[in-house]
């Protein structure tokens, strides 16, 4: 089987790196604020549509601070891409913009990292009430809303509370996200292995709750890896295999957590040419061959997870091909 897909399944575009919050786990480069030029963005979105990408995610910074957000929303409404999401902190959502959007077309993902005091602490501002109002506004206007909940020490004991809040608000889904130690200040927020296992136990009590859908990176272990030669899943590290990310400066990267590994730039090359340039993606497309952890290769999940998260290994072990420190199998 080919190592990469013909074109990406998933594409994310950081349309701006501007943000109105100051989160404790932020990995945004705040030294220079850049928006993707609208004309370039319009062309890239059309190219992604032509490449038959399944899933487009509009991300920031805070996307609603993008200078041409109104033009962009109209463009998104008319794109023939099956699943389009806007990932936002939920503080800037405007009813005038929302009512122009097609709720069957565009979905929202809003960051909510715990009950009120915890969320406000993590996000650096008293915004919890505003976020809940935005969620209600979207749901009242028939949009599908999911929550992104980044797991870290201040909030890992509060997932029960947030599940209950989400159910009351009629939110469809909560995505529990890993925290990535992209700089040293974040290390102290990361869970220990024991805390991670405690979190998994709590999560397992809820994962079959039929009132809300929960997703967690751990979920992939419940999937069949290969059903037979024709049918397969693609999980594990997807960078450069099925996933592409465009940063606000135009850099094209496989993994947003490893923005230093650049495979091209939209201001220089066409996206399809960047994707087809195997040498530009070699670090990701040869993961299976380069993984150093022999225990990993013997693991029954290896064909599916391909060694887990390479970014975590890079930041914790200083080795792109080392052990995923979050793995609880080994």
């Amino acid at each position: 089987m080919n190592k990469k897909f013909r074109t990406p399944i998933y594409a994310s575009v950081d349309i701006t790196n501007k943000c109105n919050l100051n989160c404790i786990h932020c990995r945004n480069d705040k030294s220079k604020f850049i928006d993707v030029e609208y004309n370039k963005l319009d062309g890239i979105l059309t190219e992604l549509e032509e490449m038959e990408v399944f899933f487009l995610s509009i991300v920031g910074g805070e996307p609603f601070l993008y200078k041409d957000i109104d033009r962009l929303l109209i463009k998104l409404n008319n794109l023939n891409i099956p699943k389009i999401t806007i990932v936002t902190n939920g503080t800037m959502i405007n009813i005038k913009q929302i009512i122009k959007l097609n709720p069957h077309k565009i979905k929202f993902i809003i960051s909510l990292d715990g009950p009120e005091s915890i969320h406000n602490f993590i996000r650096g501002k008293n915004i919890y009430t505003d976020v809940l109002k935005s969620i209600k506004l979207l749901i009242d206007n028939h949009f599908s809303v999911a929550i992104n909940y980044t797991i870290m020490k201040p909030n890992f004991k509060h997932i029960r509370e947030i599940i209950e809040v989400a159910k009351k608000l009629k939110i469809n889904k909560i995505n529990f996200l890993k925290l990535f130690p992209v700089h040293s200040e974040i290390y102290s927020l990361m869970l220990s292995k024991e805390e991670t296992e405690e979190l998994y136990r709590t999560y397992d009590q809820y994962k079959n709750d039929n009132k809300i859908k929960l997703s967690f990176e751990k979920d992939y272990l419940d999937y069949p890896e290969y059903i037979d030669d024709d049918v397969c899943f693609s999980v594990g590290c997807r960078a450069g295999i099925s996933q592409i990310n465009i940063l606000s400066n135009g850099d094209v990267v496989g993994c947003k957590l490893l923005p230093q590994i650049i495979s091209g730039n939209i201001y220089k090359d066409r996206l399809i040419d960047i994707w087809n340039n195997d040498s530009a993606w070699e670090l990701y497309r040869k993961i299976d061959e380069n993984i150093k952890d022999d225990i990993c290769k013997d693991c029954k999940y290896f064909s599916a997870c391909r060694g887990g998260c390479r970014a975590l290994s890079f930041y914790v072990n200083n080795d792109l091909y080392g052990k995923d420190p979050n793995c609880t199998i080994r």
Partner: peptide, 15 residues
Amino acid sequence: KYLLYSTKGYFYIIN
């Protein structure tokens, strides 16, 4: 081969 995608978020490669 075809890539099949469900809006529920699952993928398959099918013949």
